[in-house]
Amino acid sequence: MSSTELPGSIATAATPTTLPVRVAEGERIRSVTLPGLTLSVRSRPPAREGLAPALYVHGLGGSSQNWSALMPLLADVLDGEAVDLPGFGDSPPPDDGDYSVTGHARAVIRHLDAGARGPVHLFGNSMGGAVATRVAAVRPDLVRTLTLVSPALPEIRVQRTAVPTALLAVPGVTKLFARITRDWTAEQRTRGVLGLCYGDPARVTEEGLANAVHEMERRLQLPYFWDAMTRSARGIVDAYTLGGQHGLWRQAERVLAPTLLVYGGRDQLVSYRMAQKAARSFRDSRLLTLPDAGHVAMMEYPDTVATAFRELLVDQGELAADGHRVTDPGTDTGTES
């Protein structure tokens, strides 16, 4: 494994033909190279040594940047990293072209194994929630707690607003959509995505919109952009159809890690009605429902999600009720101020 790190407010961790990747103040981005796989990883320097490791996994069409609002709110209790899945953000496509949920889960596992960071507090949103569920089920040794924001788990009745996204999995649809929308500006595309993902798009700040438009412009320059979207969407649909022990709901039942579930009442991609089913399926779960949130609660209501996660740490004995971190068992006892 090799790693190259680029700090700064804007890091040029991109190919020469694309715009630079934007990195928030205090963040760093590095490239991790594994056999057949290169991953871009975003992080913040930990507030102090010895904090528990965390890994954040984005959803379909997203990137590690989706966690930039939440990560600093937990930087005093977690040593966090956010990964760009293969083909997304600044990570190039995997050599084997595997964009299935299992393929993405394998990439996460390989990253954790190579860095020897497990067990981690694992976060996942949307497709990343499905990926994180699979990781927690097949490699419980790597997962300390699991936090899922609108996880893409199979639904019997898909919402009508989610159908266009699902159609990306149909052969030929992506090329047709790309041709129909070829005259759309990056801002038009971005506003469309934000309108689909946010419960109230008015919550997006001017800076947030500018960063999202920049990222859209950058991605549209990538020759594999639509291929990664299409194959990953197909991977989600395929995962929904799997039965037996490989089915996502069956794997949810196998998760041993304490699990925080976050669902938005205005989510147009993952139905709010799935919250109770998820709460019943994960054996050690707690549920946070946000009536006004959409599909990306960690971006819309980061403070609320951070508070819920801290409460999970308190319940697990890793954080005292006064907010002080409890030293890991086996190393020392007491609290740190």
Rank of each mutant, 00 (worst) to 15 (best):
S2K: 13
T4M: 09
T4G: 03
G8T: 07
I10E: 15
A13R: 05
A13K: 00
A14R: 09
T18A: 12
R22N: 06
G26E: 08
G26W: 05
R28W: 08
I29E: 14
S31Y: 08
L34W: 06
L34N: 06
T38L: 08
R44G: 01
P46A: 08
P46Y: 14
P46D: 03
E49R: 07
Y56R: 01
V57F: 07
G59H: 12
S63D: 13
Q65C: 04
P72L: 03
L74G: 00
G80T: 11
E81T: 03
E81C: 07
A82N: 10
A82S: 11
V83I: 15
G87D: 07
Y99R: 02
G103D: 08
H104S: 00
I109V: 14
H111C: 01
H111I: 00
P119F: 07
N125H: 11
R134C: 06
R134T: 02
V135N: 06
A137D: 03
T147E: 11
T147Q: 13
T147D: 10
P151M: 13
I156N: 04
V158S: 14
R160W: 14
T161W: 10
P164R: 05
P164H: 07
A166G: 12
L168M: 15
A169V: 08
A169L: 08
V173Y: 13
R179I: 00
I180A: 09
W184L: 15
Q188M: 04
G192C: 05
V204C: 03
T205Q: 05
G208M: 09
L209N: 09
A210P: 05
E215W: 04
E215S: 12
E217A: 00
R218C: 01
Q221Y: 04
P223H: 11
A228D: 02
M229C: 10
I236S: 07
L242K: 10
G243Q: 13
G244Q: 10
H246Y: 12
Q251C: 07
Q251V: 01
P258R: 06
L260M: 11
G264D: 04
V270S: 12
M274Y: 09
A278G: 15
A279M: 04
S281G: 10
S285E: 02
R286K: 06
P291I: 03
D292I: 00
A293H: 06
H295N: 06
V296P: 02
A297C: 06
M299R: 15
A308W: 15
E311L: 12
L313A: 04
H324N: 12
T327I: 11
D328T: 08
P329V: 10
D332E: 13
E336I: 06
